[in-house]
Design a protein around this nucleic acid. Structure first.
Lengths: 97, 97
DNA sequence: CAGGTATTAAATTAAATGCTAAAATAATTT
DNA sequence: AAATTATTTTAGCATTTAATTTAATACCTG
């Protein structure tokens, strides 16, 4: 594994390694959600969620579409979805899909 | 996935998400290595590597055994090894095992 | 257009992280 | 015991990150 690949992967892991961002990714596993939807399931402010979403967007992990005054977010990178699935199997063996 | 599981997993990801630590984990994938061995493959100081190893140890990701005045490190958690393998397949498709 | 809702942006503060150099341990050899 | 090798620890500094507050933007409805 080349150093550049390691650096790129480290960046991805870093962007996933905050509890709020990891939870957001789990919530987005099977569906798309607005900031408000996420806000209802994560104990923090809208502004804070917006910041975390920005980090995930900058990393290219999630994309969004605009509808009315809602913004719906979804995971675009299949590899990220695969990683989340794998991690759930490894670290939460009782997880139901 | 419960919040406590998410928090625990976020910690693991965080400890893996530094380029030097991720590289150390890749180097330790198939073998155990001393600090000096690692030092020869990572461009930094012994002290710095020692610090990163401490973070990985505190997280329970690696263990070590002492022999003479060398300390040999290895990955103890099979789930971490599985994750690294999976990530290599996903993000470095040309990777030879 | 006025008022309301959803989201983002910017600025501030506090806390965590990472690196370096130097000193401290520990085991080994001479 | 002194010198050497391998590793760890500590302290200081600079950088980065996270959360909060406040202000701004965008879109809808009446």
């Amino acid at each position: 594994m080349k150093d550049e690949q390691i650096d790129a992967l480290a960046k991805i892991l870093k962007s996933m390694s905050h509890p709020i961002r990891l939870k957001i990714l789990c919530l987005l596993q099977n569906r798309e959600l607005s900031v408000g939807d996420i806000r209802n399931q994560v104990e923090t402010t809208n502004a804070n969620i917006s910041q975390h979403l920005n980090i995930l967007r900058a990393q290219g992990i999630i994309e969004f579409r605009k509808e009315a005054n809602f913004i719906y977010n979804r995971i675009t990178d299949r590899r990220i979805l695969d990683m989340i699935t794998k991690m759930q199997k490894l670290f939460c063996p009782d997880h139901k899909e």
